[in-house]
Amino acid sequence: MSADQLVPLQASRRTVELTIDGDPVRVPEGTTILDACRSKGTDIPTLCYLKTLHPVNVCRVCVVEVEGSRVLVPSCSRAVEPAMVVTTGSDRVRHSRKMVLEFLASSVDLSATPDVEAWLTSYAARPERYGPAAPPVAAGERDSLPTGHHPPPSTTHAATVGQPVKVDNELYVRDYGKCILCYKCVEACGTDFQNTFAIAVAGRGFDARISTEFAVELPKSACVYCGNCIAVCPTGALMFKSEFDHRQAGTWKEAEQTVTATICPYCGVGCTLELHVQDNEIVKVSSPLDHEVTSGNLCIKGRFGWRYVQNRKAADNPRTS
C-alpha cells in the first residue's frame, strides 16, 4: 500500500444539467438549487440557511418553483436533478416569499435583521395589514404556554412573539421578540457543532419557542457560553452583552468598527478569532465560517476571554522596581 492511497478518495462528482429561469446550468451532482442559482448570479433570499449547518428549510423564504412539483420547494436543501426546470421569480414564488416576509415582519421584531427591509420592499410586503402588533407579553409568559387549546385570538391586534429581553448573565442576552425560530442556534448548540444541547425548541405552533429545560435561566442550564448560537443567529435575537449595552446606550457604531483576524491564545487548537474593534476596544468576537478548524465556532475563552486585554489601563502598567 502506498501513502497516496491512504488519503480518502473523493468520489468523482458527475455534472448535472438543469434549467433555471430558462437558462441551461451545469453544476456538480449534489449541488443545492440555491447554490446552482447563485452560481449563475441569481440571488435568492435566505434566513434559516447557513452553509455550515444542516439545512432545516423552515423559513421558506428561499422557495422556488420546480416543474412537476405540486408545491414549491426550498432551494436551500433540495439537490438538483438532471433536467430539472426551476423558476425563481414566478408570481407563485413571489407570492409565497412576500407572505413569509409579511408573516415574519408582522409577528417578530426584524429591526436587527440584515437585508430584510430591502426584501420587504422588493416583494411589496405589507405586514401592517394584519393589524397593529399586539403589545409584548410579560416576562416568562410565552415560556409557560401549555400545548393544546389556546385562548381566542384578538380581533384588533396581530399576534406577535413580543416579550422582554432575557438578561441573565454578563456575556450574552436573548431577545426572543426577535426570534424567527430558524433553529440555527439549536443546531449550533446541538449535533452540528457544540453538542451541549442547552436549548431546544419547546411548545408547538405559534407558541413554539427556543427554551432551556423548564425555561430555567442560562446559569442554571447546560449552557457553556461558547456563543456559537450568537454566531449563527440571523436576527440579532442572540447578542453579545457588549453589543447589547452599546446599542442600548446608542454607542454602537458598526460602520466605524474594524475586524482583524488573529489566533486565539488559549489552547493549541489554533482557532481564528475575528476581533471587532470600536474605539480601540473589542466589542465582539467571531470566527470565519469557512475556517477549517472552527467552522465559525469558538469556546467561552475564545469568544469572551478577551476582556483582560482591556482591563489593563495605562495607569496599571507594571512599574519598574
Partner: peptide, 28 residues
C-alpha cells in the same frame, strides 16, 4: 382554524404564522 393553529408543529413559517393569521381573520 383554531385546530390548525393548535396542531401546527411550528416548524415552518407559512404554517406557524399563517394558521394564526387565518384564525385572526376568521375571528374578525
Amino acid at each position: 382554524a383554531a385546530f390548525f393553529r393548535d396542531e401546527s408543529c411550528g416548524q415552518c413559517v407559512p404554517c406557524r404564522v399563517g394558521t394564526v393569521r387565518q384564525e385572526e381573520a376568521l375571528h374578525r
